[in-house]
């Protein structure tokens, strides 16, 4: 798989803090994958997101995106066009006075010619299913709709990576589903790489790869199946467990012992049924 982002031995310290927020962290992000980064508040995951598109620069180490480095100010713009971030608060990232103007904002910054801009705005708004709202003002949109507009603004820039920085944490369940479905589609159909920083373990379970962070370092990384097998480690990272795992553990307490952990309800039901049939 092609490596899109390379983080090499990165440490980061905020000037006002005593401790390192990120300590000697290395990771790779591959083309087309959905990478979930989970961790307790203060584990450094949002700081990591900001390092990936040069909003913050590492205190030591290097961040490279498709062979551009964030250390070089001239390459920073290339990186920001390729790596879009959807932030947590839907209101505080909506710059334009209407959906159209907001999607245009990034394109204007990157100097896209007007005719092309109009075309890209149309297609990206359609891509996130907001066609009927092109003239709408932000205060008439729901949180989920605003986040979809933010996504449209990013895909109009033809990025290779979308970072969701807790982008669904302020949304209601419907808004959350809208946003995740939209990004999922982009990931599957257009091969856009997704890095999702999230508390939602049910979402992480469906990722291609999971990174668990604790105190500025990577605790473990692997497929959801590998990572969620290790409940002690998850609890150590201050995380909750996905539903099926919790239920599996509770079943063990009641004498129904399954060989391994199951990530989804479907799997768990099937495993139980097999167990019962063998009885």
């Amino acid at each position: 798989m092609k490596e899109l982002i390379t983080v090499n031995n990165v440490s980061f310290q905020y000037p006002s803090e005593e401790n390192l927020t990120l300590a000697d962290l290395s990771l790779s992000v591959y083309k087309g994958e959905w990478l979930a980064i989970v961790g307790h508040n203060g584990s450094g995951k949002s700081t990591l997101a900001k390092l990936l598109n040069g909003l913050l620069l590492p205190t030591s180490g290097e961040v490279k995106v498709e062979n551009y480095t964030t250390a070089n100010e001239k390459e920073l713009w290339e990186i920001r066009r390729r790596v879009g971030i959807v932030f947590q608060n839907p209101d505080n990232q909506f710059v334009g006075t209407s959906v159209r103007d907001d999607v245009a904002f990034g394109l204007e910054n990157f100097g896209v010619p007007r005719d092309e801009m109009i075309e890209r705005i149309e297609t990206s708004i359609a891509r996130v299913n907001m066609q009927g709202f092109i003239e709408s003002e932000p205060h008439h949109l729901s949180g989920g709709q605003k986040q979809r507009v933010a996504i449209a603004g990013i895909i109009a820039q033809k990025p290779s990576i979308i970072i969701l920085d807790e982008a669904t944490s302020m949304l209601d369940p419907m808004g959350r589903k809208e946003v995740i479905d939209t990004v999922k589609q982009l990931n599957e159909e257009e091969g856009i790489t997704v890095i999702s920083i999230t508390h939602d373990l049910e979402e992480a379970v469906r990722a291609d790869r999971v990174i668990v962070m604790k105190q500025g370092a990577i605790l473990t990384t692997g497929s959801p199946r590998e990572v969620f097998q290790n409940e002690a480690l998850l609890l150590d990272a201050g995380l909750d467990l996905p539903f099926s795992l919790k239920l599996g553990l509770a079943l063990r307490d009641y004498g129904v012992s399954l060989k391994e952990q199951h990530l989804t309800q479907e799997e768990l039901v099937d495993a139980l049924w097999t167990l019962k049939s063998a009885d």
Partner: peptide, 27 residues
């Protein structure tokens, strides 16, 4: 203030760097 801070960050993330070299949608 929090909004202003968030907004500045979001604008920077979307490649804002002043009026230089910018094209415009609204004509």
């Amino acid at each position: 203030f929090k909004r202003a801070e968030d907004l500045a960050l979001a604008m920077e993330a979307r490649g804002y760097r002043g009026g230089e070299g910018r094209t415009r949608l609204r004509v």
